[in-house]
Nucleic acid binder design. Structure first.
Lengths: 156, 156
DNA sequence: ATGATCTCCGATCAATATGGTCGCACTAAA
DNA sequence: TTTAGTGCGACCATATTGATCGGAGATCAT
């Protein structure tokens, strides 16, 4: 149903939490560890750990080992896009399979496929949407995005 | 990965085919049956049958029984939105679980959840996107959709 | 009427993706 | 050197999806 996975949900919550701690008024700059987030939001600890590892590996957060270790944002919340977060967890976001098509796989429908081009357009639009929204927008509250469509008249 | 299912792919192909036959130059108004579509696009017959049944049940196409039977669009291609097609096959399109939340299910993260509102905004944007594109746009070729975002400055 | 051809519907199975768990190696602070 | 933390990979359970099968009911031609 065009759904994002729970892992991604967790990633978003965690990032939002880390960002708000890091730039908040109470303890700015504090490092936050996995356990703290897991308990705050009732997320299974080990699963969250894996999620954070993925984010770290993708350069969204940086990890500090040892006691008093934990995570903090690797860059400004304004530079972390929702698209990047989702792709860090779920891999390249493709609305349909035929968008990457590595060699070796064949699409049985390909020869007469009539929907590839339109689907790629949709995919691109969704990507733009997610790429124009950042973690900072999620902190602030209301993301301001509008859609403008000309598709109702522009067909020949 | 925010992917639509193969059934939905099949539904889109089938609808595109039905529409192009129905409004094409060769045999306008012709009824087209499941087998024809399945063979043309290499889709498993029985699976496609189920997909078409769903579309029929949702009022997108109408079925005619018996020999020489088949399907045809129940309304103009311009009135069939991509969103409607997807929802016919996959159910209500929800980017995240917490958007419907029937009673009885509880979201463990709910009490401190910080991402619900932004996610619902995103979901709504995607819905608008898919709701503004119709089957007619897929026939014509290039859907004309643009995204306009103000999220980079509009945060308080 | 009767058979052939179609849609319709439900049950079922296999493959894949996802959510969640476990154990251990490594690192850094006390 | 002990302890609290991350890093990492293997692992299993379950849900979703893709695909299959069998039959019931409708309609048209003969």
């Amino acid at each position: 149903m065009l759904k994002i996975s729970k892992k991604t949900d967790y990633a978003l919550m965690a990032l939002q939490h880390i960002a708000s701690v890091q730039f908040g008024d109470v303890t700015p700059g504090r490092v936050v560890n996995t356990k703290e987030i897991a308990e705050e939001y009732n997320i299974p600890l080990e699963l969250l750990a894996k999620v954070l590892q993925s984010l770290s590996k993708n350069g969204l957060i940086e990890s500090h080992n040892g006691p008093k270790g934990g995570y903090l944002l690797a860059r400004s919340a304004r530079q972390i896009t929702i698209a990047h977060i989702i792709e860090s967890i779920e891999g390249p976001l493709a609305i349909t399979d035929c968008s990457h098509e590595k060699e070796g796989e064949f699409c049985m429908q390909r020869e007469h496929c009539n929907i590839r081009t339109p689907l790629l357009k949709i995919q691109d639009s969704i990507y733009q949407l997610l790429n124009n929204m950042t973690l900072a927008d999620m902190l602030g509250g209301t993301p301001l995005i509008t859609i403008q469509s000309a598709s109702t008249q522009g067909v020949e």
